[in-house]
């Protein structure tokens, strides 16, 4: 076999970074899955792992069913973070450099709750995001949009005693990516969250209301249930908006349920 044959054989649809598909192809696939889902009448709350319109998922999703397991011992607890880990200035992404970052200053606030509606107290929340022009401070980001020397786009905070978190930042811009030809991600902020149990660990993305790119984005649409994916969209909240300073968004995060028994709970509180 010649090298060219080999390349041809090894370059099926799974060539994840190729820009062979059009937006119409991707949108057609999204619509097909969506119609199947509506017919099936199920209630999914999480993204599909196997979601072909997101090309990079083709070789990276498990093909076997996830194995049902009861959490045991260590899995019933979560790591503890505190003020030794996180300093107060880390929640304001606009003050990490000498100058003011460019863009629309925003405040994002909300609560982290468990599946029973209880606040997740004093726990770590990490965020990262593109700048106002849609550019990440990352060596792999080749998008020819300007880097802002006054904006890194990384923040951390601890929730308070009632599960509240607050970040001050800049509204990120949308940016192009290589999933298909003329592919653009809706503006988003990445959130990394811990609960009170290992089983609640999650990473997700917060979006902004009314983004025209929602319908076109295979990562957002991988959550095939419309109600479920809307849970990733923050709400504009004028009570969070600060006079002559920043507009405000509200976004609550609900982690999956907890599994500890009341006796184990007492041990943790003790």
């Amino acid at each position: 076999m010649t090298e060219t044959d080999e390349l041809a054989q090894n370059a099926p649809a799974a060539d994840s970074d190729s820009a062979l598909s059009t937006q119409a192809d991707i949108s057609g696939e999204i619509a097909g899955t969506s119609a199947d889902y509506e017919r099936a009448g199920r209630d999914e709350t999480q993204p599909r792992l196997d979601y072909a319109p997101y090309r990079s998922s083709l070789l990276r999703h498990p093909t076997k069913d996830l194995h049902h397991a009861d959490p045991e011992t260590i899995e019933l607890f979560a790591p503890v973070f505190g003020h030794r880990d996180v300093g107060a200035p880390e929640s304001d992404l606009t003050i990490h450099h000498t100058g003011e970052p460019v863009g629309e200053r925003i405040v994002v606030t909300g609560r982290v709750l468990d599946g029973d509606g209880r606040p997740v107290r004093h726990q770590l929340v990490e965020i990262w995001q593109a700048n106002a022009a849609g550019r990440y401070i990352h060596k792999r980001d080749q998008h020819p949009a300007p880097i802002d020397p006054n904006f890194t786009g990384v923040g951390r905070t601890l929730t308070d005693g009632d599960g509240h978190y607050t970040f001050s930042t800049i509204k990120p811009g949308p940016y192009p990516w290589k999933n298909h030809y003329n592919a653009w991600r809706p503006a988003h902020i990445h959130f990394s969250l811990f609960g009170t149990e290992f089983t609640q660990r999650m990473i997700t993305q917060m979006y902004f209301p009314g983004d025209p790119l929602f319908a076109l984005d295979p990562i957002y649409q991988a959550i095939v249930d419309p109600k479920a994916r809307e849970r990733l969209v923050a709400t504009y909240d004028h009570d969070v908006t600060q006079h002559e300073w920043a507009t405000g968004y509200h976004w609550d995060i609900v982690l999956t349920g907890t599994h500890r028994t009341p006796m184990e709970e007492e041990e943790v509180q003790a």
Partner: peptide, 8 residues
């Protein structure tokens, strides 16, 4: 019981 926020 609240519906969980999806991952990404």
């Amino acid at each position: 019981t609240l519906p969980p926020t999806p991952g990404q």
